[in-house]
């Protein structure tokens, strides 16, 4: 499937009905999701995929659309209900699991894809717990962070290595009271991290 076709399909994915600000719930934009998935697909790294903090499922569902065996885990049951409906609507199977990122356990997986909370809100777990879990179980990680996180992430995941950096701007629609503009553009970076 071409990247543009994937993006069009992913535009049909529903986001959060009542997003939690403390969990920094917002849906990964379809354009960035398809960029990430295309990058992984080109490298043959979209075979067995786990999405940590999958929310309503866009990354895991996109991976399944590209032919991957796909799994998603999140702590929000309501988000997972929507994720299951999204997968069904797009005709793919994804195994979704309810779990706490700091306490759940997996066997080793080939690839993790994730857009973890950035830790901008005080009560959020932030990206550390997600990165810690990811380097524990995956060979390769595709992960989205605030622009400027490179040095922190590089040292945090060591001895795993950041092998590629891709920069993007994403629109965040006004979701929470503290968002002042209707659409805020934020700079993000996608890292490909190799652990094997």
């Amino acid at each position: 499937m071409r990247k543009r076709q994937l993006e069009i399909l992913l535009q049909r994915v529903r986001g959060f009905t009542s997003p939690s600000a403390t969990m920094e719930q917002y849906m990964t934009p379809p354009s960035l999701a398809s960029d990430l998935l295309h990058m992984a697909h080109m490298r043959g790294e979209l075979t067995q995929v786990l999405d940590l903090g999958c929310g309503t499922g866009i990354l895991a569902i996109g991976a399944a659309l590209m032919g991957a065996e796909a799994y998603g885990v999140d702590i929000d049951r309501q988000a997972l209900r929507i994720a299951r409906e999204n997968a069904e609507m797009l005709g793919v199977h994804v195994d979704f699991v309810l779990g706490d990122i700091e306490r759940i356990a997996f066997r080793r997986v080939k690839t993790i894809i994730m857009n973890p909370p950035f830790g901008a809100q005080h009560a959020s777990l932030g990206d550390r717990a997600f990165l810690r879990k990811a380097v524990e179980i995956a060979d390769v990680i595709y992960t989205i962070h605030n622009a400027g996180s490179l040095n922190f992430v590089r040292s945090f995941v060591s001895p795993c290595r950041i092998e590629e950096v891709y920069k993007a701007r994403i629109p965040i629609k006004r979701t929470f009271e503290f968002h002042r503009k209707d659409v805020e553009w934020i700079e993000v970076e996608l890292y490909r991290i190799v652990c094997k």
């Binding site: 299951r84 699991v97 706490d100």
Partner: peptide, 8 residues
Amino acid sequence: EGIPNMLP
């Protein structure tokens, strides 16, 4: 509802 609950 099709979702394993792996919370401790």
